[in-house]
Design a protein around this nucleic acid. Structure first.
Lengths: 154, 154
DNA sequence: ATTTTGGTTCTGTAATTACAGAATTAAAGA
DNA sequence: TCTTTAATTCTGTAATTACAGAACCAAAAT
């Protein structure tokens, strides 16, 4: 396909984005390739060629990305190759999960509060205040998403 | 102070939580120690003793945690030690930053959409739909936080 | 039957991470 | 002034990460 320089740059940018989330660099770049790719789907071989990485690295990456639901593949009749792509429909729920992951800190802090007892009224008070905030956000995020769905559904 | 077993377990749990966010294990455990500590503040020495780590590790950790605004210290008259603690007031804005960090993916995807051109109507459509979703969340999160503040302010 | 294609698995390694330990410094106390 | 205390900085290293490369395997094509 011969990717443009701009697209190659974007792949790297997307790679860095996912690396920041704790993923291996290549994993994110594969996602990037699928995003910028004209067909929005790539074969094993295309990944190897376009990203200049080894087959083993691609194999491991695809195994991981499929296991975590980030990537799926489909086949074409009379073609042995797998066509890997991003299940875009899952992106919204992925985003919701990510948001909820952040507010999961609430559970730990709740335990902290119990364990602290009545030892330090001032600090306990700040802690409770922050807990109230997280609990609020935790409750409102699903409401927000519901609101979006309803708004879109009409 | 002799921390309880439960508190020690909590410190580890908090450590893992922050490790998941990309921090070094020790960094999270220091935050954990401050959270469960009776005084909610600890000296350099206490960190070394309670967590059984080297001074160098603690020094590096505190430098990083202070540089990123996760930890601050104050001093006491006639006492050379620094008392490190969590600036709880900043927790709320930290959480907001974290939430907004997630939806930063929007900016990259916007570039992707531009670069893709009119090459694949189907995929571009799913991409646009997801972009609408992120943009909605991105707009509503500050609104949500404003709502919380107002509600609390009364 | 054997060669090719598409992909996996195993082994090794350069680079990075997450510390420990020792030497060092800077300020306060004796 | 010399020592102690509080913390930093430098050096080294065990463990982990993120791959490459080669061997391998299974299904399909010849």
């Amino acid at each position: 396909m011969a990717l443009s320089e701009k697209k190659r740059a974007l792949i790297e940018k997307i790679g860095v984005h996912f690396e920041f989330k704790g993923m291996q660099p290549l994993f994110g770049r594969i996602i990037g390739l699928m995003l910028v790719h004209e067909r929005a789907e790539v074969t094993f071989e295309e990944i190897v060629d376009e990203l200049n990485v080894s087959k083993s690295a691609v194999s491991n990456a695809l195994t991981f990305l499929q296991a975590t639901g980030k990537v799926a593949y489909h086949t074409k009749p009379g073609d042995r190759k797998r066509y890997f792509h991003l299940p875009m429909k899952d992106f919204t729920s992925d985003m919701e999960k990510e948001l909820m992951e952040i507010v999961k800190f609430e559970e730990v802090l709740e335990e902290v509060l119990v364990e602290r007892g009545e030892t330090n009224a001032d600090f306990n008070c700040s802690l409770k205040e922050f807990l109230n905030f997280i609990k609020f956000i935790k409750m409102e995020i699903p409401v927000l998403i519901e609101k979006y769905k309803r708004q879109k559904g009409l």
